[in-house]
Structures are given as structure tokens and as C-alpha cells.
Design a protein around this nucleic acid. Sequence first.
DNA 1: ACACTCAGAC
Length: 663
Amino acid sequence: MNMPLRNSTLFNAAVIRKILVRSPPSGFATIHAPAAPFSDSNDSEVEDGDAASFCVFQDKDLLRKSQSDGGTGLYALDLIQRGSLVPDYNLYSKLLKECTRLGKVEQGRIVHAHLVDSHFLDNHLVLQNIIVNMYAKCGCLDDARRMFDEMPTKDMVTWTALIAGFSQNNRPRDALLLFPQMLRLGFQPNHFTLSSLLKASGSEHGLDPGTQLHAFCLKYGYQSSVYVGSALVDMYARCGHMDAAQLAFDGMPTKSEVSWNALISGHARKGEGEHVLHLLWKMQRKNFQPTHFTYSSVFSACASIGALEQGKWVHAHMIKSGLKLIAFIGNTLLDMYAKAGSIDDAKRVFDRLVKPDVVSWNTMLTGCAQHGLGKETLDRFEQMLRIGIEPNEISFLCVLTACSHSGLLDEGLYYFELMKNYKVEPDVPHYVTFVDLLGRVGLLDRAERFIREMPIEPTAAVWGALLGACRMHKNMELGVYAAERAFELDPHDSGPRMLLSNIYASAGRWRDVAKVRKMMKESGVKKQPACSWVEIENAVHLFVANDETHPQMKEIRGKWEEISGKIKEIGYVPDTSHVLLFVDQQEREEKLQYHSEKLALAFALLNTPTGSPIRIKKNIRVCGDCHAAIKFVSKVVDREIIVRDTNRFHHFRDGSCSCGDYW
DNA sequence: ACACTCAGAC
């Protein structure tokens, strides 16, 4: 007799029996009615599943009664147990499928136990498969595996259910390892299996498994399946091979929204905002409706290039299309507004989320921290704890970043300690941020000691943080030491060398500057070219230092000269220590004048209405001279100027900056 | 009768 789980320790039989034989809940009349089905809500992510699960009961009366136990169907099981409801395959499978859909494993376990007890499961491959699938979908992979192992006969569905479980629950290795086993036993993968396996082979292990699977698909002709095709597109995109992804996409005989989304999200991950917007437009022209996935990718693409206007436009488009603002997409929308420079819009989106999750909170915290709202970040974090949202490592990283950006030493110390209470292990980024905090407030020696006493090996980034602090406080000796440590650990990063040459430059040690530059050249380290961009009327304009190529360059230079004259009148003195060149004072000043952010600013002043805020994005940190200049400009033109650099936002208004000259 | 592909915070 085949009773896979009868004696397994998976279930506490006593407990289950107790639940099964308990008397039906009383007082139906006092049970409050479920939420009105048509209540107006922005967020429809509220599980409507409880209502749906009632449909397993044909009997209206039974349906109403079953609501009393939350619609889980336990009441039905009671009836089965008492013999007043005769179970059949249909009822069992519907119950199990509902449990799967709603993620209610505990209820599913009870149904499972019941099936075991009643011997209904014996030799019933299909039901067994449904159970494997239920555990796998609910993330109980050990249970799924156990069930799988105990099944004397399996078919492709069994294998696929387990493989899909692993690949959907972030265990790609386990999914891929099943493939050879399956082949060895003579099972031939079909398009169900292959799409799951392809999903599991995105990036993590390089291109190898993916291409092998691709060969498999070709051999058996499965590449024409929409599922397999989309999974192929996604796999190549995740491995960073967008050309191969495009090829796979073009080769699909029939496409779906999912195929488009896989392609779009690939480009979005690469930060190719323009192209993503182009694809969104193209997708619609081909009569495919953008879905939540599509918009989510598009918003994150807009976030990465800081395209606020285009993002807003897409947002409006989404609203018009009738898609609701569910948490799924709300988080990326929130992130887009925060990253594109409008923290107020971000807050508005956050306030409208009905069920903000950890990710929503973290996104909001990051936004506040990056906009220099240190106190607010901490307040929100405390609020999050009060509400009972469990903070994770990213939450703490946000909090530490906020402390660092706002120079809140005591708070930083407190939260670093607090991590223990929430069983969050500090990782490299936390150490980097903490060193940054100590360094900024001038505790350089303490920062160094902290690095030495770290329980994990410091990385180049950790030393880099100390180096940055040394630059700020002009401590050359320690700076050089930190730079050397950083070089050792990561010879390919140009960051530490740039910082070091900055330190030398600000001390006027031009010889050393030259030495570092020579080193960089010899080791083949390439400095990332600095650029700034502004978005004006749905177009992004990009500038590099001393740019000559922009069609409006003459006017731009003219504008800057005019502004530059005005700010000098009210006290701006060019700080030429940021120009690392062996040139005379005059020439240095000239080079400085046309840093990319200044060009972008002049361009924006020329092309935007008076009084409107100006948003500039930059791919490296804003230099000290530009920072000083922009402060004066904000006063002279009486406008808010928002600059996003790699780390944070600077809000310039009326001659000062939100970062408190501290970045 | 059961199984598959597409978002997000650092």
C-alpha cells in the first residue's frame, strides 16, 4: 500500500486531528461581513482569494458558513470528517489549488493529512503532483522535496513542479541540478520544464547553462513556445547579452506581453532609459497592452536616468489605461519620483499605497536619506518599527546612510547597535557607511580603528570611505595610507586614485598628482568620464566638460559668462584646486568654468521657464567649486536647483544647499 | 484532471 506521508514527521498528527474534529464554529451571525467587493480602493492587492475559495462549495448555505473560519475550507473538512460531505477528487483538488493560490500552506497541510488518512492519495499521481506543487509554490521546498522523494512513481509534471518551485523561490542551483538527474532517468524535458530551467539559468552561473538549454530547446523544437521563447529572452537579458535577447525575441513566431516585458526589463536593468521608452511605445503600436511588469520596468528605467517628466507622462498613461496603483508597481513609481528628484511626489505615492511592504518603506527611507532629510528618515524608520514592519539589512543601510549624510553621529552609533536586536548582520555596505559617518564628523582615527576591528575583512570600498573622509578633512598622511590599502584590494577601481590625486592637488603637491595620474595610465585604469544631463521637454541633454558639440554651445557659454559675472559680484571665488592640471591660474579657471554641471545648468537656464526648479543629474560626485558656484547661482536667479550625483541629492535654494556643504 | 515565461529597495 502506498501511503507516502503516513508516518512522516512532517505532520503533527495529534494537532491535525484536533483541528479536524473540532466542532464547527458557532455564532455565524456575529461574524462580520467580508469587505464590500466594490469598495473604491487604489490598491486592489487585497487578497480577494478568500472570497474565491468559497466557490469550492456549491451549497450556498455551506458557503456562508465556511466564511466563519476565514473561508479556508476547514469547515468543509469538518463536514467531510463527520460524513456529511462526501469528498471526491474535485473537492480535494479545488481545496488544494485554492491553498496554493492563496499561499495558505498550513491549510493545505491539513488537507494533505486528511488525504493521507483517508487513503485517497494512494496511487493517485495527479493529486500527489498537486501537493508537490502546492508545497513548492508556497516556498516549502523541503516539504515538496520530501513528498517528491517519497513518491514511487513520478511523471514529467512531478519533476516540473519541483523544478519550478526551486526556480521561483530563488534557488536556481537546486533547480538546475535536477535537470541531469531527470535526463538520466529517461525523462524528456518539455516546454514546461524548459521554461522553468531557463528562468533558473539567468546570470548567476554565467551564460553556460542557458546556452545549453537553448540548444535543447532547438533540438526538440520548443523554442516556438511563447513560454520558452520569453524565458530565453529573459535568460539572455539577465546575462547581459541584450543582442542575443533581441535575437531570441525576433525569432519568436508568436509573442506575448511577457516576451515584451522580458526584453524591456532587460534594457531597464542596464539603465537604458531612452530605449526602454522607445520599446514601450513600440509594444503598444504592435497592439500589446503594457502590464504592471511593463510599467514597473519603465519606471525603474526613468529612475535610473532621472527622467522625471517622461516618468510622469508614463504614470499618467498608466492611470489612463485603467491599471491600478498596487504595491507591486507603487514601489517602482515611488522610487522613480525619489530618484528623479521629486521627493514630494514620492511621498504622495507612498501615502496612497494601501499596503506598503518592506520594500515600499525602504524605498521611501532611501529617498529621504538621499535627499538629505536625515531626521525625517529616522522618524519614518521609527514609525515603521511601531507599525510592525520587520526591518531588513537594507532598512538599516538607509538609516545609516541618513545619519552619515546628515552628520548624526550618536544616532548612527545607536542604530548600528540596534541591528543586533533585529538579527541583521552588518555587511560590507553597512561598514562602509559607518566608516563614512565617523570620517565625516572628523573622527578619522576612530574610523581607522573601527576598520581594523571589523569582524569581516575590509574591502576596498571600506578603505575608500576613509580616504574620502581624509580628503574632506585634508589629512594627507592617513589618506595616502587608506588609498594604498584600497589599491591593494581593488587595483582596477579608479575611485581611490582620483581621490588621492584630489588630496594632493588640494595641498598643491602637483608632482604627486602627476605620479598618481601616471600610475593610473600605466595600470590601464580608466577614469569614468564625467557628464551631466538635464531633461527638457521630454528630451535628455547630455554634457561633458568643455563640451563643444552641443548645437547651442555658443549661447550656453554666453549664458554662463553672464551668470559667472553676477555670482562673482556677490562673493563667488573660483576654487581652482579642483583642476588637476599643470596650467597657470587663468587657464585653470577657464577649465573649471566649463565643468559639465555648469554647462547643463546654463543650458537649463536658457531653456526653462523662469522660476521653475532645475534638475541636473551627474554621474560622479559634484566638485567643490561647482557646488559653491551653484549655491550662488540659486540666489542670483532665485530658483531651486536640484543636483543628483552618485550618492545623493543637493537642493540648492537661496544661496545654500541642503547637504550643508557636507557630502 | 496536475506543471511553465515578465517588476522592485542597496
